[in-house]
Amino acid sequence: MSEKLLCEIFKSSRKDEMYLYVDKRRGVEPVPEVLMETFGKPIPVLTMILTEDKPLARVKAADVMAAIEEQGFYLQMPPAKEAYLLDIHRAQAAERS
């Protein structure tokens, strides 16, 4: 794996908090068509140089770089909604009404 990667990040036009990381030089070309249908129109968010030790919000940069090298892209899924937080919100809403 190379030490640096010029990475372009796109957000999904269809799913909140879903992001696609790709090698800037190749773009979304390696991404399977079926995934692009689910992802929707890729909206450019950010271009950055990734290094293995670069801090990212939800994932290790080394994992992103490895996925891009192996399959041509990395798909970041939306975070799971915590069911118990939803239950707490519903309980509080019920108490107020």
Rank of each mutant, 00 (worst) to 15 (best):
D63T: 03
D23L: 10
Q76V: 08
E3I: 07
R90E: 05
A83M: 05
D63M: 01
I68A: 02
T38Y: 08
M48W: 06
S13G: 11
S2Q: 11
L20V: 04
P79R: 03
Q92P: 01
A62L: 05
K41Y: 06
M1T: 08
E95A: 13
K11N: 15
V64S: 02
K54P: 02
D63I: 04
R90N: 10
C7M: 04
F10S: 00
Q92C: 05
L46S: 09
D87S: 08
E52V: 05
E69T: 07
V59W: 04
M77T: 14
E95H: 04
L50H: 05
I88A: 09
K4C: 07
Y19T: 01
Y84L: 11
M48N: 08
M48K: 12
L56R: 01
R90S: 06
Q71R: 10
F39V: 08
Q71K: 07
K4Y: 11
M48Q: 13
L20G: 00
L6H: 12
R90P: 00
S2T: 09
Y84A: 07
D23M: 10
F10Y: 06
E52G: 10
A66K: 10
K24L: 14
L56V: 00
R26N: 12
R58S: 14
P55W: 01
H89L: 09
E17D: 15
M48D: 09
E8S: 15
Y84F: 07
P44K: 01
I9A: 00
K11V: 12
E33N: 06
S97V: 11
E29F: 13
K81N: 09
R58N: 15
V45M: 15
F39G: 03
R14K: 13
H89M: 10
E33D: 11
R25K: 15
A66F: 07
Y84M: 10
S13E: 05
L75V: 05
M1L: 14
R25E: 15
K54I: 13
P32N: 07
E95R: 06
M65D: 00
F10I: 01
Q76M: 12
D53M: 10
L35M: 11
V22F: 02
M36T: 06
K41Q: 13
E82C: 12
S12Y: 01
